[in-house]
Nucleic acid binder design. Structure first.
Length: 288
DNA sequence: ACCGCACCCTGAGCGC
DNA sequence: TGCGCTCAGGGTGCGG
């Protein structure tokens, strides 16, 4: 769910609730694929530490601690980072829905990390059903290959740079947009939307897109990401803001998950195809 | 260096 | 009601 706008919305809403607070206790779920740093070691390292910053790089969040350690967080596909007490139907399983839970988030088996603070509630919760999310502790001064690999932040998408990087690529232009080493933060939804806004078909070879088109595309990448941040992100399946609220951008998307619907410009039928194992949506008439 | 693919995990929604 | 299937916005690691 979470692409750059959702991660940025999370960061902006979460920061005032956590920065400057001291972690009093840490509860972790069992070791899993989710914990790159084993839970016991993570809990020991975080307990008693003060959170000094919350930053974003691409789709990663970096929680800085006053002692110089940093916690690298990734929301994966179903990650939810929120304050305890947040109310959202998206925080419940279907079973909880039907049993009439009021939506107030109780830790369930998908809540892998709980931080509680010295000055009292609410604490921070990290829930992730599919466990494609990640938690990783970075020692003071230490970086991580995941971060080193990231290309330019997509909010600063640069058309000329995209054009240069595209010259030796035989893969489709959409694959280029999704490459985090090229543009950090763009995912499936916003790639489809930006290509639609630019009149470029996602299947077209990256090499076949002109400099002029890359300039337009970079502009539209920025535009769609900023607009989504303004509306609180896209809550298409699991994303919620730290306060439990849904984003609204899903109501503004033009092609993503609109297969079979009419294009807003020309009324042609939006089609869905698969590119690189991911669904892609476009207007066969407006996008060439 | 790049490309396509399998894989990590769980749940929802569908047809039968 | 239940079974089996497909799908889901993430990234990584592999062989070619």
């Amino acid at each position: 769910m979470p692409e750059l706008p959702e991660v940025e919305v999370t960061r902006r809403l979460l920061a005032p609730h956590v920065v400057g607070r001291r972690i009093q206790s840490v509860r972790c779920g069992p070791p899993s694929y989710f914990f790159i740093t084993p839970p016991r070691r993570l809990a020991a390292a975080l307990t008693g530490r003060e959170i000094s910053s919350l930053e974003r790089q691409g789709k990663y969040l970096l929680m800085g601690l006053a002692d110089g350690q940093r916690v690298l967080l990734h929301l994966g596909m179903t990650g939810q980072l929120f304050m305890a007490g947040a109310v959202s139907p998206r925080l419940m399983t279907l079973a909880q829905h039907s049993s009439g839970n009021d939506g107030n988030a109780q830790p369930d088996r998908h809540t892998h990390l709980e931080l509680d603070f010295a000055d009292g509630p609410p604490g921070l919760r990290f829930r992730d059903v599919r466990k494609f999310g990640k938690v990783l502790l970075l020692a003071p001064g230490k970086g991580d290959a995941r971060l080193d690999k990231l290309g330019r932040d997509a909010l600063q998408a640069d058309g000329e740079l995209l054009y240069q990087l595209s010259r030796k690529r035989s893969a489709p232009v959409k694959t280029l947009l999704l490459d985090q080493g090229v543009l950090a933060g763009v995912g499936n939804i916003y790639a489809d939307e930006a290509l639609y806004m630019s009149g470029i078909r996602p299947t077209r070879g990256a090499r076949r897109v002109s400099r002029r088109e890359y300039l337009l595309l970079a502009d539209n990448v920025q535009r769609v990401l900023l607009r989504s941040i303004e509306t609180g992100g896209s809550s298409i399946s699991d994303f919620i803001a730290p306060d439990g609220k849904d984003g609204q951008f899903q109501n503004e998307r033009k092609v993503y998950a609109r297969e079979g619907e009419a294009c807003g410009i020309c009324s042609s039928v939006i089609v869905r195809i698969v590119i690189g194992q991911r669904s892609s949506h476009y207007c066969p008439s407006c996008q060439r």
